[in-house]
Simulated assay, not measured.
Amino acid sequence: MKRIIRPVLLASLLWTCAAACHAQLVVIVSAKNPLASLGESDVADLYLGRTSQLPGGAQAVPIDQAEDDAQRIDFYRLVTGKSQAQLRAYWSKLIFTGRGTPPRSVADAQAVKKLVSGSPNAIGYIDKSELDSTVKAVLTLH
């Protein structure tokens, strides 16, 4: 019995790891938002508080996932090149000097999608596999 269970468990673990390694993040806005695409630098500027407006002038509402979420860690690494420790230091400085407020954090990707779908000015990020008709991708991260 052990000879059968071990290979099955190993195959399951490898499949899970492979799926996680091929996960692809997308930056999303509401399906009602007229925005068609954003560049990585635009997204970085929004999430680092360098700008508060979407192209076209609308006030942006960036939504973050929980600080320890793997998608958040990957998102910031890909878009800003910063680690979580670097981000904490970055935001601590801006908050202390009164020059910025970090994006609102929510529990998970489902919460991000719910907030973004309900607000035309909200922007967030989720795994590409979670896209549906309520939101649209404006940037795919590699």
Rank of each mutant, 00 (worst) to 15 (best):
M1N: 13
K2P: 01
I4T: 10
R6I: 15
P7V: 05
P7I: 07
V8C: 14
V8M: 15
L9G: 07
L9D: 11
L10D: 05
L10S: 04
A11W: 05
W15G: 04
T16G: 08
C17K: 07
C17Q: 13
A18Y: 14
A18D: 11
A20H: 13
C21H: 10
C21G: 10
H22E: 04
A23H: 11
A23M: 13
L25P: 01
V26M: 05
V27G: 10
V27R: 02
A31P: 06
A31L: 02
A31Y: 02
N33G: 08
N33Y: 02
L35H: 04
A36V: 13
G39D: 15
D42E: 15
V43Y: 07
V43D: 01
D45Q: 14
Y47M: 08
Y47N: 03
G49N: 03
R50M: 13
Q53D: 01
L54G: 00
L54H: 02
P55E: 08
P55M: 14
G56N: 02
G57K: 14
A58H: 00
A58Q: 11
A60D: 08
V61W: 01
V61L: 09
V61D: 06
I63V: 15
I63F: 06
D64Y: 01
Q65H: 03
A66S: 15
D68E: 11
D68K: 01
D69A: 15
A70E: 13
Q71S: 15
R72Y: 07
D74V: 00
F75D: 01
V79K: 05
V79T: 10
T80K: 05
T80M: 09
G81D: 09
G81S: 10
G81W: 05
G81V: 11
K82H: 09
S83I: 08
S83A: 10
Q84G: 05
L87Q: 11
R88A: 15
R88W: 10
Y90N: 10
S92D: 13
K93M: 11
L94N: 04
F96Y: 11
T97C: 10
G100D: 07
G100T: 06
G100K: 06
G100R: 00
P102N: 09
P102D: 03
P103W: 04
R104Y: 08
V106N: 12
V106L: 12
V106A: 15
A107G: 09
D108F: 02
D108N: 09
Q110H: 13
Q110D: 08
K114L: 10
L115W: 04
V116K: 04
S117Y: 12
N121R: 12
N121Y: 12
I123Y: 01
Y125S: 09
I126M: 12
I126P: 02
I126W: 02
D127H: 07
K128M: 11
K128N: 04
K128V: 05
K128I: 08
S129R: 12
S129Y: 08
E130S: 10
L131N: 06
L131E: 05
S133G: 06
T134H: 14
T134S: 15
T134A: 14
T134P: 08
V135E: 07
V135D: 00
V138H: 00
V138R: 00
V138L: 02
L139E: 07
T140V: 12
L141I: 15
L141E: 11
